[in-house]
Amino acid sequence: MSEKRQHLPTVRLRRLAAELRRLRAASGLTREDVSSKKGINEATLYRIEKARTRPQKRTLIALLDLYEATEEQRSDLLAVQSGSTDQGWLRPYHSELPEEYTAYIGFEAEARTVRNYESLFIPGLAQTESYAHAVIKGVWAAATSKEVEQRVQARMERQALLTKDQPLQLWAIVDEAAIRRTVGGPTVMREQVRHLLQLTESPHITFQVIPFDKGAHAGMPGSFVHMDFPDPADPELVYLDTPAGDLFLESEAEIRRYKSMFEHLQAGALAPNDSADLLAMVVATRD
């Protein structure tokens, strides 16, 4: 595994970074202040606070001393630091996937709830293998066969989160366009919509559709994923997959904005039972 891969952000590393940012702000110190008082390079401190690198133990202790952390905070953050590089979710072939995508897989694997809005695609956690293959090949036109297969394999492995003993809670909302567009041909799409219909029977999966006749709605600017985690101390996360690159948003203002957006989408979409009826109708028209 490359050095770059070793420093992929993890949930624990993000928690450490968020708490160090909070403690510095509570102390009324700028990064420049910290650098002058403790001799820590400003660029290094920036990377620590953005979860881009794990602080050495002596650096963390120096920061906790400066911020006058309580014994409880000190004990908790030192414990987080000692285990913040755990990436047991990585598979050997993940080193060939984009760095941001492997980070996303890791966050998703540790999440409690995923709220996913998609305007044009079936959510990755709900895709059949045939649909995933068709959509990845169609969107990523320059990809080699090997690259397509790696993406498909990763997507199928992610779906194990929905069937584990304590399954991931998934709330997915899609625009009607996602279930109407014929991706991979009629047979592939019929199989895909049937699969969605089966998933709606799972108590930990909620699926809603925003019908065409709803008109303009809050999700039209684009798709997004909002995650929260079992431990309330772990900061929530929003993920955006854009043509310009993948983005992870974690400021309180950004989280509030996307949570509000998802709530508007929930209110504007068909109820889960009505969404299932629409899926059944789509299946019937494709038979």
Rank of each mutant, 00 (worst) to 15 (best):
A18H: 12
L199G: 10
D246N: 12
R112T: 06
P230C: 11
L249K: 08
W171C: 04
K146Y: 03
L13D: 07
L77E: 02
T128Q: 00
Q169N: 13
A17E: 08
R112F: 11
D274T: 05
E100Q: 14
T187D: 14
H226N: 01
K50L: 05
G124F: 01
L8M: 14
M220A: 10
R256H: 13
S260M: 14
S75K: 15
L20R: 01
D165K: 15
Y93P: 01
D76S: 13
P211K: 00
L196R: 04
L199K: 12
S251K: 13
M156F: 09
F212M: 10
L199W: 05
Q192L: 02
E42M: 12
D228N: 15
T187R: 12
A18Y: 06
S84C: 15
V283G: 05
A109R: 05
M220H: 08
E252R: 10
D287F: 02
K259S: 14
Y104G: 01
I136K: 04
L278P: 03
L265N: 11
Q153V: 12
L265F: 08
H204Y: 07
R24S: 08
D33Y: 06
L247G: 02
Q6S: 09
T242C: 09
D277A: 14
M220Q: 13
L168E: 08
A18C: 07
R181K: 15
F121L: 15
P243Q: 00
D246P: 08
F207I: 08
L125W: 10
D76C: 06
S145H: 11
D234G: 00
A233G: 09
Q153T: 15
L168V: 06
T187K: 12
M227I: 03
E201D: 15
M281D: 14
A253Y: 08
H7C: 03
E252H: 04
D231Y: 07
Y117N: 09
A178T: 04
S27Q: 04
A172E: 04
F224P: 00
Q73C: 02
D33M: 08
F262L: 08
R257I: 05
T44E: 06
R31Q: 13
E129V: 08
E254A: 15
F248L: 10
E191R: 14
Q150E: 13
I210H: 01
Q81M: 10
A103H: 07
G222F: 02
G185N: 03
K50Y: 01
T182N: 13
I179V: 15
